[in-house]
């Protein structure tokens, strides 16, 4: 990323202006034109550096429940099982990790029963149970914003 890209990303991963001409607002903040802001962001997106430009919602305030789940999957079934897990739209993240419980995934679904059903379905479809569901009881920190610097 060049300096302009890093500067823009730094601002708008935190605080996209909520106003009629947000890119003009950003342009004034970094000292370029509105069109330069738009084309810079378009280029970052084309290159896959940034993903979507949309808000992060609080699932609980929308009536949704979440959990972190993990299961033990035999090494030779990782691709097959992750395919099954991935087909569930309620699964937002899935990682292979270095641990006896090697497959870790996050579920976001409309209520605790819906979360439970996704877990039951995945257990049934994969036969890799029991799945451990680890919904948090307390949040000490939740901050997915990183400092971005120009290369």
């Amino acid at each position: 990323m060049n300096d302009l890209e890093a500067q823009l990303v730094g601002i708008i991963q935190e605080d996209f202006p909520i106003e009629a001409r947000p890119y003009r607002h950003l342009a004034q903040a970094v000292g370029v034109t509105e069109q330069e802001v738009i084309s810079t962001l378009a280029s970052l997106r084309r290159r896959g550096v940034i993903r979507d430009l949309s808000p992060v919602f609080d699932p609980k305030k929308l009536g949704y429940s979440t959990t972190l789940a993990c299961m033990k999957v035999p090494a030779d079934r990782i691709d097959e099982v992750s395919g099954i897990i991935g087909r569930h739209v309620e699964v937002t993240h899935n990682y292979l990790r270095e641990h006896e419980y090697n497959v870790w995934f996050a579920i976001v679904a409309p209520g605790p029963d819906a979360v439970g059903r996704v877990i039951e379905q995945i257990e049934e479809e994969t036969g890799c149970g029991p799945i451990r569901s680890l919904p948090y009881s307390r949040v000490f920190k939740l901050r997915a914003v990183f400092e971005v610097t120009g290369e």
Binding site: I12, Q13, F16, V49, R51, L53, P55, F57, K61, V145
Partner: peptide, 12 residues
Amino acid sequence: RGIIRRMGLRIA
């Protein structure tokens, strides 16, 4: 109201 937790883009 905190329903939108953060207004911003996601980085890959």
